[in-house]
Amino acid sequence: MQTKETIVCRCEDITLEEIKSLIDQGYRTIDEIKRVIRAGMGPCQGRTCRMLIAQELAKYYGIPVGEVLMPTFRPTVRPVKLGTFAGGE
């Protein structure tokens, strides 16, 4: 696979090569990778990249995907305007 051109996190433009490089450097979980490179911090909150990164970690450590630690799923489910919460709209 073309790791340089394969986008893993579409919100933040993170490639597979960047993810693999962090895993090689010893970043062991989705949480750690997210905080260093912003994968999963965009508007979709990791809906796509979370599982793709989980697959890469599972492959690297030889464990089932189900054993990869998931990050906390945080509100909001989708982006909502501050004005809506303030009761103005």
Partner: peptide
């Protein structure tokens, strides 16, 4: 969710322009 309403009210009072910004995550 109480926090979301509270912070949204305070922020849009002090900085009204921010009412158009979308929240992507809270913690």
């Amino acid at each position: 969710w109480e926090f979301l309403e509270d912070v949204a009210r305070q922020a849009t009072t002090v900085l009204p322009l921010l009412k158009n910004l979308r929240v992507v995550r809270q913690w």
